[in-house]
């Protein structure tokens, strides 16, 4: 059974259709990369899956549970999905440790000591042990994004959504974040990531989905999509990417 299953998703913002009958399935331990031009609906799709946006039509199932049913409590669904944003969105008034332990303590009602021990261990694993007491504005972009990933991970989510997580980073900081995502894949995390990093999508993704006009118009293993794209729109997109020197 797939972890995530989207059927006929439709989302419009004041008349502008962003998702137009989109279907997507993600199997357990699978890493799916969403590629496509800006405005093709990648971020909107991730926000809809996390119920941060209400869909206008279609259904989303998480582990077989219909999560876009209006009777479902969205807070409980979100606890099972981690999302990391392009602009980190750390809480600036909290230390790194408080950022990471906020959800365990307030949502899962865990003891402070236990939550902090777990947070420190996770931070240490990504080389941020000594930053536990620091405020986000004292961290580099790469460090902030790694904290944001840890913050999403402490909830032990079934599914991680990564929304352009390296787009706001200086080139020399991209590597540390990508390494972390690679480790997550090695641990078997199910992930959907929207990305402009074609090289990374090719390395880490099991499947690449090309979004255009609010639909997945081509998908397959990265080597196939990147080497022998069948849809003219995909070919056009990849051509532009190659011209820009990003593949």
């Amino acid at each position: 059974m797939s972890v995530l299953s989207c059927r006929g998703l439709r989302k419009e913002f004041s008349g502008h259709v962003v998702l137009d009958g989109l279907d997507l399935d993600v199997a357990e331990h699978e890493v799916v990369a969403l590629i496509g031009a800006s405005g093709s609906g990648k971020s909107t799709l991730l926000r809809c899956v996390n119920l941060l946006e209400e869909i206008d039509d279609g259904t989303i199932h998480l582990d077989g549970e219909h999560i876009t049913d209006p009777r479902v409590n969205p807070d409980r669904v979100r606890q099972r999905i981690g999302i990391v944003f392009q602009s980190y969105n750390l809480f600036p008034h909290m230390t790194v440790l408080d950022n990471v332990t906020l959800a365990p303590r307030r949502v899962h009602r865990r003891e402070r000591a236990a939550a902090e021990a777990q947070a420190r261990e996770l931070l240490a694993r990504v080389g941020l042990a000594e930053k536990a007491g620091a405020y986000p504005d004292r961290l580099s972009g790469g460090q902030q994004q790694r904290v944001a990933i840890v913050r999403a991970l402490v909830n032990s989510p079934r599914l991680m959504l990564l929304d352009e997580v390296t787009s706001a980073l200086d080139p020399e900081l991209v590597g540390e974040v990508l390494t972390m995502i690679r480790d997550l894949k090695a641990q078997g995390m199910t992930m959907v990531l929207a990305t402009h990093e074609m090289g990374f999508a090719r390395q880490v993704a099991d499947r690449v989905c090309f979004l255009d006009g609010g639909k997945v118009i081509e998908q397959g293993p990265p080597e196939q999509v990147f080497a022998t794209p069948t849809h003219p729109r995909t070919r056009q997109f990849l051509h532009r990417i190659i011209e820009a020197g990003r593949l």
Binding site: R47, N50, L52, P74, D75, R76, R78, Q79, I81, G82, I83, F85, S87, N89, L90, F91, L102, A103, R106, V107, R151, A152, N155
Partner: peptide, 16 residues
């Protein structure tokens, strides 16, 4: 709004 999104995405309620 991104602060709201980040907090709600962690499972925090409106009040939290």
């Amino acid at each position: 709004p991104s602060q709201w999104a980040a907090a709600r995405s962690l499972g925090l309620t409106y009040r939290q």
